[in-house]
Nucleic acid binder design. Structure first.
Length: 191
DNA sequence: CTTAGGATCGCCT
DNA sequence: GGCGATCCTAAGC
């Protein structure tokens, strides 16, 4: 049977949806992706909106590379670039259901509850030990491991979190019914 | 359960 | 100089 693959050249919202349910590991630690957000160059909320800069260079590079940036001066956030180079498109990984390496993640995070280990982009990077050193690396090679869901996944959508522009764009994607998302989704239809 | 404030600093105007 | 694609804690209802 055919192995499911992510089409990294697809638009950000497509990739964001396809990543829901995928197994993401960094050095053998991680779990199932349950929440993502899409960004692209036409989008005022995106880091890439005003064109290439030193920080967002990876977003404008080849698709499938990990874009890591520092948030609020203290957290790391992890994205994967998509579309062709130059498009400034990417998907923010916002939450993972921790399944592999629970104790390692607990130690890194300093909390016990699985629910709080990877629920949010900053928490996720702390639990998986993702830092600026990972910026620009291909997500399909070590230390990363990404295995797409091999079956149908029920996905819910909603407005993105923590932005002040384009707040009406429904480019937040989540695994329907998951208790590991960073925040509940407003009532929305599954697709 | 909801809201408010602070921490903390790199990036862009 | 201002502002975040955030998180934590404490206090209010």
């Amino acid at each position: 049977m055919a192995l499911a693959l992510i089409d990294w050249a697809a638009p950000a919202d497509r990739v964001a949806r396809d990543l829901i349910g995928a197994l993401l590991l960094v050095d053998g630690v991680g779990g199932r992706i349950v929440e993502t957000e899409a960004y692209d160059m036409q989008d005022p909320a995106s880091h890439s909106f005003s064109g290439p800069t030193a920080r967002n260079a990876t977003m404008f590079g080849p698709p499938g590379r990990v874009y890591v940036y520092r948030s609020y001066g203290m957290h790391w956030c992890m994205n994967v670039a998509c579309r062709e180079a130059g498009h400034g498109a990417g998907v923010l990984i916002r939450a993972v259901e921790p399944t592999v390496g629970l104790d390692v993640m607990r130690a890194r995070r300093g909390v016990q509850a699985p629910r709080l280990l990877c629920a949010g982009p900053g928490r996720l990077c702390q639990a998986l030990a993702v830092t600026r050193e990972h910026d620009g690396l291909p997500v399909q090679a070590a230390p990363f491991s990404l295995q797409p869901a091999d079956g149908p996944v029920a996905v819910v959508t909603g407005p993105r979190i923590g932005i002040s522009k384009a707040t009406d764009v429904p480019w937040r994607f989540g695994l329907a019914g998951s208790g590991f998302v960073s925040r509940p989704f407003p009532a929305s239809r599954s697709t």
